[in-house]
Design a protein around this nucleic acid. Structure first.
Lengths: 343, 343
DNA sequence: ATGAAAGCGCTAACAT
DNA sequence: ATGTTAGCGCTTTCAT
């Protein structure tokens, strides 16, 4: 019942050739006679021969597969990025292995290690919120494993990176609220160590400054796990609502935080936008059917995946060691909906 | 710069031992002297030796990794299933390779083939809507690859399966609408060939029958790709609204169809639930912030993943060929919200 | 208790 | 144009 996959050896034996001849014929080497080649090819076709990628990986130390590490796939932004990555990978003949860190540093290390030991040809990674130590990635990178960062990047490593224009996204979100008439704007964001947090916070601050609204530290709330865990967002919202000088609007810095914020306010019967304006960072396709429809900064997630994958392939396939690295910044887009309309 | 990973050979050379001794010491073989073992273990530890899983896979034809094939990860239901799978896999020391068919038969075949050739020890699969021919899976199964089906299963293969109680889910959804006072209930569903479609349709019909409401074929609309492509849902909604005798409620059979339905009706200014009641099948965590809040049948997705993985491990690790197979049916849960309230 | 050698499937340097 | 051989990292007979 358990029949084995057919190998080059089987073909060689059946055809009275050596394995190397078969191997060469299969790969279309010019030093094989047309006759033999045809013979081998046809026989292989007939038996539906498939080269064993494990053997290939062992031999060549490459696998034509790449690894992805994200915190969560149950996230509009990341699943769209992954689809972008896959679309390019598929075209170029690379397979994609997806893994999740669940925002845990330990899991991130385990996953990268596993992927590397599986001989992935390269790594696409968006860091977990817990990650501050980069030695696991540095080690692999030093060993020659191509790595491209996307979204949550690090200054500490020199390689290709792709991000959204988080500064601008947050700036526009904040400025939009200001122009609509909101004055006391809070910022609900992720771990302060993440690159995206810093970039978005800077955009938020810049917009306030440009409109002469003083920056008030108490209005910035960090959810270390970006709302991944129940209660994190609720707590942040509660502490905002408990302020003597309550905010009249919130800029929420991620998918989960945006929807979590909406849900938390609904539960507390805080009317949006009458009592609290909201602009979220989200790639949900459902912003229109939220209550209220959610004004949001959309990141070009699919495109980010495509660009990241293209960059990675460039690194993988480059004949010479790449020394010039680039950080691509993709534009975000603000869509105004009901949640930010001053009544 | 590009330093190679350390191998058993390096250790052997450094310690003046043979590779076989090192191998045995590493695996704790009883025929190795305590002294040598200690020596090897300590040296390996010091150099942070990690066995090369590719070499192991080639040798042992197993990899301690399993493959998942789903149509889309950008889907609440499936990403929750995957998290369930991972939670068990992680505990048991299995790695998980996720791949997407994007509802394409061709991609499903390519993915399963790839996973098999990567020596996954088993496969967890939910079929694409296009799949009717199962020979790609049958071939692998005959070869001895353990396979467990979840959610979208097939009658044609004998192995473990896990599904939600789709019949009951649809029955409850439909009955709930009837009891609330809706009379002309449409059913918006996926490809008629999918197991889940049949099961849900049967539940819908049974509820109608039990309440003496005649079954009207024109009220059942199939979206072949389950709303994956823009326009599919819109079209279905339009054709429902164009009926001489319009429905007054809809049971939507999937995540994408439920939200797509809500969005399409909003765009057409059809008020929910006043003009159209809705019950959806969805695992979204956002049902409360939809407008209106969506009454929904929730599937135990995480649990389904756990069960599927446990079943797969049982197949993988069983010493004897497994001959008794089981289909586990997990209960669904109906949460009533605004979208199904008769005004 | 340890080592030598074969083999997993494949490629490539080196014969012929 | 084709065959022989070695080797990728590891385990596992079979010797010793």
């Amino acid at each position: 019942m358990k029949y084995e996959a057919i190998t080059i050896k089987d073909i060689a034996k059946a055809l009275g050739l050596s394995t190397s001849t078969v191997s060469r014929a299969l790969r279309g080497s010019y030093e094989i006679s047309a006759e033999t080649r045809k013979l081998v090819l046809e026989y292989a076709e007939k038996l539906n021969y498939r080269p064993n990628p494990i053997a290939l990986s062992l031999k060549e130390k490459r696998s034509r597969s790449i690894g992805i590490v994200v915190c969560e796939i149950a996230n509009n932004f990341f699943s769209q990025v992954i689809n972008g990555i896959e679309s390019v990978a598929y075209k170029k003949g690379y397979y994609v292995i997806i893994s999740q860190s669940h925002e845990s540093f330990e899991r991130e290390v385990a996953n990268t290690q596993y992927l590397a030991s599986r001989s992935v040809d390269g790594l696409l990674i968006s860091l977990s919120t817990e990650t501050t130590d980069l030695s696991h990635l540095n080690k692999l990178h030093d060993r020659g494993l191509p790595i491209v960062f996307f979204d949550r990047i690090t200054e500490e490593m020199t390689t290709h990176k792709v991000i959204a224009n988080n500064f601008n996204g947050a700036y526009q979100a904040t400025e939009h609220l200001i122009k609509t008439g909101f004055r006391r704007i809070a910022h609900l964001t992720i771990s302060p160590y993440l690159s995206i947090t810093k970039e978005r916070l800077a955009g938020y601050k810049a917009a306030l400054a440009d409109h002469r609204i003083p920056y008030d530290e108490t209005l910035v709330k960090y959810c270390k796990y970006g709302g991944l865990f129940e209660g994190e967002t609720e707590e942040a919202i509660d502490s905002l609502l408990a302020l003597k000088k309550k905010p009249d609007a919130i800029v929420a810095a991620s998918d989960k935080l945006s929807t979590g914020c909406l849900a938390a306010l609904a539960r507390r019967k805080v009317r949006v936008p009458e009592e609290m304006g909201i602009v979220g960072f989200t790639n949900s396709l459902l912003t229109d059917i939220f209550h209220p429809a959610l004004t949001s900064v959309r990141q070009p997630a699919f495109e980010m995946g495509q660009v990241a994958m293209e960059m990675l392939i460039q690194l993988i396939e480059s004949k010479h060691p790449v020394t010039k690295f680039e950080t691509r910044v993709l534009n975000t887009e603000l869509s105004v909906r009901a949640s930010s309309q001053k009544p």
